[in-house]
Amino acid sequence: MTTVHVQYYAVLREQAGRSEERVETGAATPAALYEELRARHGLRLARAQLRVAVDGEFADWQAPLADGARVVFIPPVAGG
């Protein structure tokens, strides 16, 4: 198991009901982590509509997830 710090933005924050949390996970990639959290919090956005950043950098969904990583899920926003 690894422990990661997760942050949610915009509509995801609303759906998750929180802006951040620490998560113990068996997920090896951001993709697997998102699917796990999606089921847990009832997140409705599909992965294709989001981007993920790991440790301050936009990352590939299939990149390996290290213990202690800071993961940010970001939907695009359009308001102006």
Partner: peptide
């Protein structure tokens, strides 16, 4: 470029 959503912006 910028955009906003409720209390957030990019």
């Amino acid at each position: 470029l910028a955009s906003v959503y409720q209390y957030e912006g990019q």
